[in-house]
Simulated assay, not measured.
Amino acid sequence: MAAGKVAHVTLKGPSVVKEILTAMGVALFAGSFWKMHQWNEQRKVRAFYDLLEKGEIGVVVDEE
């Protein structure tokens, strides 16, 4: 019997453009979550200082 030829997949190197675009996509995705987190923290801090200025909250514990 004659041995048949088997088609093998040839491995190629990484595509530089594809790697750059993938990295940019991941960076934008992660960066957007980080920015949303920063905006939420900034909103909490502003709300705290607004309440502090209005006198609704205090940072000193009253002694009894």
Results as ranks from 00 to 15, higher is better:
L21I: 04
P14G: 02
D50F: 04
V26T: 15
V9P: 03
S32N: 06
V45Q: 03
K12L: 09
M36I: 10
K5R: 08
A23H: 02
S32V: 04
F33L: 14
W34L: 15
K44V: 01
S32I: 05
E64Q: 07
D62V: 08
V61P: 06
A27E: 09
M24I: 13
N40D: 15
A2D: 11
T22D: 13
V45M: 02
F48A: 01
F29T: 11
I57E: 04
E41C: 04
K12F: 05
F33S: 06
K5C: 08
A27C: 04
V6H: 07
V9Q: 09
V26Q: 11
E19F: 05
M36G: 06
K5M: 09
G4I: 06
T10A: 10
V9L: 12
V16N: 03
F33P: 01
A47P: 00
M36F: 06
Y49H: 15
I20G: 02
F33T: 03
A3E: 12
G55A: 12
V61Q: 15
F48K: 04
I20R: 12
D50N: 09
V45G: 00
A2Q: 06
K5G: 09
S15Q: 05
A47H: 07
L11E: 13
V45C: 01
W34I: 12
G4N: 14
R46P: 00
F29A: 13
T10Y: 02
V59T: 15
W34D: 06
D50K: 07
K18D: 15
M24P: 00
K35R: 14
A23G: 04
